[in-house]
Amino acid sequence: MKNTVVKICGLQDVEVLKSMLNLPVDYIGFVFANSRRQVTAEDANILLEQLQDWQHETRPESVGVFVNPDIDFLSKVMEQAPLDVIQLHGQEDAVFCEEVKRKFGVKVFKAISVHSKGTENGSELMEPHVIANDYIGVIDALLLDTFDPIYGGGSGQTFAWEQIPHYQNWSKEHGVPLFVAGGLEPNNVSELIAKYHPYGVDVSSGVESNGLKDIEKIKAFTERVKQI
């Protein structure tokens, strides 16, 4: 079976990125949305320069994470930090995703927020919106993350994994790679992959200590994903 793709998100520290140069990481994510991990375009450009020195056989692609941005803001970021992928984490519709893809010539990942168990109405899952077929042929990947009412994601909490097949069926039917995020860490990622075999996994807070990226946790997470 092909190795699961690894995305390490929320990078801010140049030294941490330098320490990752030999790891088999596929995507590096930078958060431009409101978050404690938020970076500026200037910050991201400095971090992007480090990717030129990547020593593993495959250099990771850079991903910018945005929540309901406008085209002007994206343009300003892309002028200073030429990203490979724009990940849209808000309520962006397929028309906007297509405009982003056409204007910037990048891959577009669309995030879907999934509620965790135990919602206020007692149901196990509440879908904020249904996947629309309008996205077919527009987005390059679908990413599932735990619903967060403030930031849209990055909560560090898992969602109801048993709902993954619902999205996975859609993903396979339309040839859209599926990433899973939300509360992943070195201790639970093996279970996720063994049960659901997603195309990729996305981690941020699960490889942090005291709110900062921890290179030992990043190594452990990557090793556990790639050894499966």
Rank of each mutant, 00 (worst) to 15 (best):
E185M: 15
G211V: 07
P186F: 00
A181S: 13
S190D: 13
V207K: 11
N188Q: 13
L212S: 14
V189G: 07
D202N: 06
P198S: 05
S204V: 09
V180H: 11
P177F: 04
G206D: 04
A194Y: 06
S190A: 15
P177W: 03
V176D: 06
L184E: 00
N210F: 07
S209D: 06
G206T: 07
N188W: 07
G200S: 13
S190H: 13
P186K: 08
E208C: 07
D202I: 03
P198Q: 00
S204E: 11
S205R: 13
S190R: 14
G182H: 06
P177E: 02
L178C: 09
E216I: 12
E208Y: 03
G182Y: 10
A194E: 13
V203I: 02
L192M: 08
E208M: 04
V176F: 03
N188C: 00
K213G: 11
L192Y: 05
G182E: 02
G182V: 05
E216G: 04
H197I: 11
G206L: 10
G211W: 00
S204M: 02
G206H: 09
G206A: 03
V180A: 08
V207T: 03
V180T: 02
F179I: 05
A181E: 06
I193S: 07
G211A: 12
V176A: 05
A194T: 13
L184S: 05
A194L: 12
P198A: 01
G183K: 03
G206N: 10
V201W: 09
E216K: 15
E208S: 08
L178Q: 06
D202Y: 10
V207N: 12
S209P: 08
D214W: 01
V176Y: 06
I193V: 09
E191C: 14
Y199F: 13
V189H: 07
S205K: 12
N187G: 15
P177H: 05
P198L: 03
E208Q: 09
G182R: 07
D214N: 14
L212D: 13
E208I: 02
L178M: 12
D214H: 12
G183Q: 04
V207G: 01
G200M: 09
K213M: 07
I215E: 05
V207C: 01
D214F: 09
P177L: 10
K213S: 08
E185I: 15
K213D: 06
G211H: 09
Y196N: 04
L212K: 15
S204N: 03
D214G: 05
V201L: 00
K213T: 02
